[in-house]
Design a protein around this nucleic acid. Structure first.
Lengths: 147, 147
DNA sequence: AGGGGTAACTTCCTGACGGGAAGTAGGCAC
DNA sequence: GTGCCTACTTCCCGTCAGGAAGTTACCCCT
């Protein structure tokens, strides 16, 4: 067991996990990742704060406070934000750091694992933003095809 | 409008759509894409049928029948599969082709737009399968940290 | 000719889950 | 002491997903 190299373990994992199967753990993981808040939280933590000015900078991850995330991810309920952050922490994708300041301050940051996933998520978010027009056009065509 | 180059249109779209905003159309699109069945359907249609033998071949998209998808995506209900396929068709990501054979045969295939999204989805599915062990390890640590 | 079979849905019911809003802890400023 | 701040937690309720049964349309078999 301990005699396997990382590469061996990786190839074995690749062979054993199949997200198409319902019972597979990786399927459950994929279900978890396929969550709108997960996508947005990862996209938020991965981009630097100046996404509005410089677009999505692929640079170093940034730690954000709970309230910052709450503000950036417009429309997220506090319950879902907490829940999403907890599950991401549990899965080792982000770290939670509580500093005992006046009112306790909590900051979240991507781990290396989370950073690797962030690449995917950022791509997904970017895809949605760039191909929005195509999708909208297709919808218009579809809706008028047979009224 | 028609005088803009594709690059110009793209940069404009990039500037206008921001998936972090709740009201933005791209946010709604991202929500739609962040669906476990969407991810799996796209992953299925993009991979050739021999994913079990040759893993996820990045080759040409493959048309699949309703029943094939239903079988491959273990656990999907017929209702959700139909619903997912309909919305993907509406958004121009897949095409639906009904051939009037004995019992009508319906096949689905990725469009070019869908194929570009498929790259993302395949990456996501692969990520889930390859990093499953890391996540599992992190969960074990988290759960035993404070019982 | 009538019963059975098949593909691709559609409908109905019910339980789980997400959103909204209100409540909690606890330390400091006034 | 009263109030406020952050970061949650709890409660309620509407919506939505899952499961199973029903539907349509056609052909085959007897």
């Amino acid at each position: 067991m301990a005699t396997m190299t990382a590469a061996q373990k990786r190839s074995q994992a690749k062979a054993e996990y199949d997200a198409f199967l319902a019972g597979c753990p990786s399927r459950k993981l994929l279900d978890r990742l396929s969550d709108k808040w997960v996508t947005l939280v990862l996209a938020a933590l991965g981009s630097d704060g100046s996404h509005r000015f410089g677009a999505d900078c692929a640079g170093k991850p940034r730690s954000m406070r709970y309230s910052e995330l709450s503000r950036l991810l417009a429309g997220v309920s506090q319950k879902m934000l907490t829940q999403t952050l907890r599950s991401l922490e549990r899965d080792g994708l982000i770290t939670r750091t509580a500093t005992p300041t006046v009112p306790v301050t909590v900051s979240y940051e991507l781990t290396d694992l989370g950073l690797s996933l962030h690449q995917m998520m950022r791509g997904l978010k970017t895809w949605a933003e760039t191909h929005m027009d195509d999708v909208l056009a297709n919808r218009a065509t579809y809706d008028t095809r047979d009224a």
